[in-house]
Design a protein around this nucleic acid. Structure first.
Length: 467
RNA sequence: GUCCCCAUCGUCUAGCCUGGUCCAGGACACCGGCCUUUCACGCCGGCGACAGGGGUUCAAAUCCCCUUGGGGACGCCA
């Protein structure tokens, strides 16, 4: 089999949504898994609703997801002449005709059909009138009146539609611009697209497009329609379901690896496997494992994957991301951009952060100047008791002379203290934690002390004692 | 309304094509336990589904039909 050519063809009327992202991923995977090509086409024929800003946003989301494309993206808005040549060919071959019906008249036809309990359609009034071109006239496709259009969908199997269900769609508007179905067919053919994998919402367009391919004498590509993504409530995904564009997931602290893994697993599977690296996906991806039923988006599972990738990712990567987060933070010390230091901090939070936002929030105490620490009042009241303070005083003194100031010796010193005073560590742990972080939950005490270093550790202990 | 598509634990899914190994497996979430200096992580265990009804068959989650439910489409949007 020849190497496949797939494409992703977003309309730049909004950000890249997770649904679109998943479609893009599948197309990318289909191409990359078979040494094919993956191309991008910006469907901006509707100039009113399209703009460059959105195009840039979509491309940057694609990059963030790690979906690289071949060639420069093409813009449909720059190819009107090309599409119109196709319309002219169809006109010449008798597959299309001019129609002078106004939108109002067509709407009346549809209303009439609806009233009879039929599918609302254009009734073909100008179909046989042989109208010449003229002001206010559109070009319509002469859809066959009989027969069925059948195709074998890569994910759904055989789909058949009676041609009578289709009406004579507009190919060229009164203003001379081409419509979606025509442009898609012209481009997919011209770009050599072999596999059209797209959202479910396009199944109904497929028979129309197949008819156009046939009328134009083009060979048919393979078609595949992936089900839509539903909200957690099984309803159509909408704003009230929270973040929906991949950009939002980026700002919310999700790793692209997690988003890709999650999305790919939504509607596609490989046995019981849940975790897939990009490289592995490229190796094992197959459209035959695509699911044909709609899937609900589950933020909890995304969170699980994200924390998994946070645990797995390497320190340089995470430290870099953390530095970026801190850069937007007020009142942080120079440590906030100190990558080697951050690389010591990150491991403490890898097992406890679900997102990078959480990690930045929890790790903040490491880059805040000692006097900027904010203490949880209730925690101070509850744990910095007179008795605890006595111990803290002595522990502070003990740590002053400790060398080396690392986890093993800190632990040993503490154990010695515990033995001497016959107290349980449980009694001291929370007071120390509150003194060091201002909070009641944090990573392990000794690992934190080691990362903080002697000076900061002592400063914070003393500060807490003075509260 | 008409047409198209879909239907396994709460959710994502395996199994379905090529019926028996499935009184249905995994994962997320949830619950319980263990670990433990807090919060987490981790480990162990538990709860939990073949939408309903008819067929076909010795045998159906798997094949067929109907019903119900859900989604999509029906634009001079894409």
């Amino acid at each position: 089999m020849a190497a496949p050519v797939t494409r992703f063809a977003p309309s730049p009327t909004g950000h890249l949504h997770i649904g679109g992202a998943r479609t893009a991923i599948f197309n990318w995977l289909l191409a990359r898994s078979q040494g094919g090509r993956f191309i991008l086409r910006i469907e901006d024929t509707d100039r009113q609703r399209s703009n460059q800003e959105m195009t840039d946003a979509i491309l940057s989301s694609m990059k963030w997801l790690g979906l690289d494309w071949d060639d420069e993206p093409i813009f449909q808005s720059e190819r009107f002449d090309f599409y119109n040549e196709h319309v002219d060919r169809l006109l010449e071959s008798g597959h299309a005709y001019y129609c002078e019906c106004t939108p109002e008249e067509v709407e009346a036809m549809r209303e009439e059909a609806r009233a009879k309990g039929l599918k609302p359609k254009y009734n073909g009034r100008c179909r046989e009138r042989n109208l010449p071109p003229g002001e206010g006239r559109v070009v319509r496709f002469k859809t066959p009146l009989t027969g069925k259009t059948v195709f074998n969908d890569m994910v759904k199997g055989t789909i058949a539609v009676d041609n009578t269900e289709l009406d004579d769609m507009i190919l060229r508007r009164t203003d001379g611009t081409p419509t979606y179905n025509l442009a898609v067919v012209a481009d997919d053919h011209a770009q050599g697209v072999t596999h059209v994998l797209r959202g479910d919402d396009h199944v109904n367009n497929t028979p129309r497009q197949i008819l156009l391919y046939q009328a134009l004498g083009f060979p048919l590509p393979e078609f595949g329609h992936v089900p839509m993504i539903l909200g957690p409530d099984k309803k159509k995904l909408s704003k009230r379901h929270g973040a929906r564009s991949v950009m939002e997931y980026e700002v919310d602290g999700y790793l692209p690896e997690a988003v890709v893994n999650y999305l790919v697993r939504l509607g596609w599977s490989h046995g019981d496997q849940e975790i897939f690296s990009r490289e592995e996906l490229v190796k094992i991806f197959s459209v035959s494992n695509l699911n044909s039923s709609a899937a609900a988006f589950d933020p909890e599972k995304l969170n699980w994957l994200n924390s998994h990738y946070i645990k797995e990712s390497d320190l340089d990567y995470l430290a870099g991301l953390l530095a970026e987060r801190f850069a937007a933070e007020e009142g942080v010390g120079p440590e906030a951009k100190d990558i080697p230091f951050l690389k010591q901090v990150v491991p403490l939070f890898q097992p406890r952060a679900k997102t990078m936002v959480e990690m930045a929030e929890q790790a903040l105490i490491f880059v805040q100047p000692d006097d900027c620490l904010s203490y949880d009042e209730k925690a101070v009241e509850k744990f910095l008791t007179p008795e605890a303070r006595e111990h803290l005083e002595r522990v502070t003194a003990l740590l002053e002379g400790l060398d080396p100031f690392d986890q093993p010796s800190l632990e040993a010193a503490m154990q010695a203290y515990l033995d001497e005073y016959e107290v349980k560590f449980k009694l001291l742990a929370q007071p120390i934690r509150v003194a060091l972080t201002g909070r009641t939950f944090s990573p392990g005490l000794f690992e934190m002390m080691q990362v903080l270093g002697r000076d900061k550790t002592l400063t914070r202990l003393r500060k807490a004692l003075s509260l």
